[in-house]
Amino acid sequence: MLRFLIRRTLGAALILLLISAFTYFMYFAIPQDPAMLACGKNCTPDALALIHKNLGLDKPVPVQYWDYLSGIFVGRDFGVGHCSAPCFGVSFRNNQMVWSTMMDRLPLTLSLTFGSLIVFLAAGLGAGLLAARFRGTWLDKTFSGASLVTSSFQIYFIGPVVMGLLVFSTGWLDKPKYVPLTDDPFGWFMGLLIPWIIMATIFTANYTRMARSSMIEQLQEEHVRAARAKGMSSRYTFFRYAWRGSLIPIITILGMDIGGLLSGGMVTELTFGLAGMGRLARDSVVGKDLPVLMGVMILSAAFIIVCNIVVDALYAVVDPRVRLS
């Protein structure tokens, strides 16, 4: 296990390094001076030179990249002030520290991801198990049909429709907004309820199908049949034997989905007008704000990689036959 973790962590570090280098040098291919962004409309050559110096843009690009990397570990000094240890630089647009901006935005993205995760896991796995248990009945057909339709929904269409129904015409709920959990747990819950439900609607379908098909497959396995044949109750074999075996594919897509949600809740955030990491990423791309984009990119990639490692470690927990090597 330890060897596995060490090896994977080293691999992860390498991938993060490659991603950061790729993004950094790619953005210098844009024939545009980033200092112009920070300088604004009434820009004089002197001011421009000052900004160059403050942001460290007067050095060659590889040196800048090296400064950036070392800044993440030891911090850096900018013209606008000191940037302490996890230093992801200073935004070209508003001179804010990238790390603190990201930490402001992260709670919303985490709330969105894990809140919707609970809803769609419960709904999807529940429906999938029921459909597998009552295979071929009207229940199974209803769930299959429903998941077919909901998987064809898009957040940017169904989101406004549901908002229109629940917020603007009936007024049952307020427009989604983010209140920190620590300030007001109830407000936090009510503010994010609609996004959770919408995201869950779209993700549930996949889990229903997945849980159903892998459960059906597992129930036909030899060891499940043998357990049933030697007289174990059908409930026990269902939950202890088949269920455990069917977790592998579910964990696989769950890992991918969590990584995707943490790095790309862009559509949800834009649809509901919430300001999380996804929106930050979009704005940094549209505004060509390289330091912010770098920060979001590295953090998102780190999330995805961590999810992958956790998924691989979980395989061994769920299925004793899997050896981590």
Partner: peptide, 23 residues
């Protein structure tokens, strides 16, 4: 596969565009 694919797609687009078009 380890790239945050959605994010990367969004990030690469303006670069590709600006390489071919003057600002």
């Amino acid at each position: 596969l380890a790239l945050p694919s959605q994010l990367f797609m969004v990030a690469v687009m303006p670069v590709v565009v600006t390489v071919f078009v003057a600002p």
